[in-house]
């Protein structure tokens, strides 16, 4: 699904990613953990195509296709989804209308007709139930006045609507209480299939109790310094990141 080879990226001439190698196969869940400033969010932004970051070396292949030259929306059309740590507020545009625009723009790019209104409504109903989202919530302006938990739940709702091949959850657990965390994780688990893949980026092990990873990677100073199974997350929780820092 996703192959990253020797990826180097900088922002304003400061190198943040210093040679990342990662392979994520369809059906897998990968967790990327690491201390603050390790480059976790940079990695997710670079995969999604944020223009502030300059890729200086390496490749990002999605199903064999190079992403680096593509605009963020083109990557989205090919099935890359990024759940934001800090979702943006868009006053005056409802969640429903925002989703309609996003879905129909994606369909347009894929050469499909617009989704019929009744089909769209049915999908919205199903997916909002999955995330235990109140219908009233959907007519509110996107993220405006949403609590931290509502914003994150809305991110996963959008993921459910867009049905991406590769979903990257960037610190989705931050700002969530335990109930919201369970709802969000439950949603992600239900959306998981043998045809898609999930990368969970997190500082803490907590989320991984609910979304169980097949692989855990530890990012430190722009490189993946350790890879293991789900037990690596527990080990990290126990020993702290200093363990990694001291080893390297």
């Amino acid at each position: 699904m996703l192959v990253i080879k020797n990826l180097h990226a900088s922002v304003e001439d400061k190198e943040i990613l210093k040679g990342i190698n990662l392979e994520v196969k369809a059906g897998e869940v990968h967790a990327i953990m690491g201390p603050n400033g390790a480059g976790k969010s940079t990695l997710s932004s670079v995969i999604a195509g944020r223009e502030d970051y300059e890729v200086t070396e390496g490749e990002i292949l999605l199903e064999g296709e190079e992403l680096i030259e593509l605009a963020p929306e083109e990557r989205a059309h090919k099935g890359v989804f990024l759940s934001f740590q800090y979702p943006i507020e868009i006053p005056g545009v409802s969640v429903t209308n925002f989703m309609k625009t996003a879905i129909n723009e994606t369909r347009k790019a894929q050469g499909l007709e617009e989704m019929p209104a009744n089909e769209m409504l049915k999908m919205i109903r199903e997916k909002s139930e999955l995330l235990e989202i109140d219908r009233k919530f959907l007519s509110r302006s996107l993220n405006e006045g949403f609590s931290g938990g509502e914003k994150k739940r809305n991110e996963i709702f959008q993921m459910a609507m867009l049905e991406p091949k590769l979903a990257i959850l960037d610190e989705t657990d931050s700002g969530l209480d335990i109930d919201a965390l369970r709802i969000v994780a439950n949603g992600v688990n239900k959306l998981k299939s043998k045809d898609n893949a999930v990368i969970v980026i997190t500082h803490y092990q907590r989320l991984l109790d609910y979304i169980v990873p097949d692989f855990v990677h530890v990012l430190h100073d722009g490189k993946i310094v350790k890879t293991g199974g789900k037990e690596l997350a527990l080990e990290l929780e126990e020993k702290g990141y200093d363990w990694i820092k001291n080893e390297n």
Binding site: A71, E73, A76, T101, E105
Partner: peptide, 11 residues
């Protein structure tokens, strides 16, 4: 905000 919307597939 532009990046957020583009990420959702909006040109």
């Amino acid at each position: 905000a532009m990046f957020y919307m583009q990420q959702r597939g909006i040109p």
